[in-house]
Amino acid sequence: MGCMSDRTAASAAKRLLASRLAARPGIAAVGLARQDAGYVVRVDLTDAGAGAGVPQDVDGVRVVTHVIGAVRPL
């Protein structure tokens, strides 16, 4: 598992994971985040249970989850 991925590798992993998770309930967003000296894919969840089945890495890029709660329009 690489946690010091460059932006290009992390972007490719983000696109792949976003397409895999697109229809799953509880997934609020899939994006990139800086961590240490590189990038990780960050998956924002509406609740902790939604994280079950989210992989720990995609193509060697580390995936982190973060519970943000329910998303409501402003």
Rank of each mutant, 00 (worst) to 15 (best):
D59A: 15
G69Y: 02
R20T: 10
V67Q: 03
A29G: 10
A10F: 07
A70D: 15
Q56D: 14
A22Y: 10
Q56F: 01
D57V: 00
V71Q: 14
G2V: 04
P73N: 09
D36T: 07
G49T: 04
G51T: 09
L16P: 00
G60K: 06
G51N: 07
D6F: 10
A48C: 00
P55Y: 04
A18E: 15
R7S: 06
V54T: 03
V40C: 13
A70V: 12
R62W: 09
P25V: 08
A52T: 09
Y39K: 00
R24I: 04
M4C: 14
A33M: 13
R7W: 02
A12F: 02
A28T: 08
S19A: 15
M4F: 12
L32W: 06
A28L: 03
H66L: 11
A13G: 05
L17A: 10
A10R: 05
D6S: 12
R20M: 13
A22S: 13
A12S: 13
R15Y: 01
V67M: 06
T46R: 12
S5R: 08
T8A: 15
V54Q: 03
T8N: 10
D47I: 00
R20G: 05
A28W: 02
V64T: 14
K14R: 15
V67C: 07
I27L: 03
S19D: 15
V61E: 12
V54L: 08
G26A: 03
V41L: 11
V71W: 04
D44A: 14
G49H: 03
A12N: 07
G51C: 12
G31P: 00
G38N: 08
S11P: 00
A23Y: 04
V43K: 03
S5C: 11
D36A: 15
M4E: 14
I68P: 01
V58F: 06
G31A: 10
G26T: 03
G69S: 04
A70M: 09
D47T: 09
G2W: 04
T46F: 01
L32A: 09
D57K: 02
T65Q: 14
P25G: 13
T65L: 06
R15L: 11
P25K: 14
R15Q: 11
V58L: 07
P55W: 05
G2I: 03
V30A: 06
A50G: 04
M4Q: 12
S11F: 04
L21Q: 05
G60V: 08
R72Q: 14
G49C: 03
C3K: 11
R20A: 15
V63R: 05
Q35N: 05
R24V: 05
A18C: 02
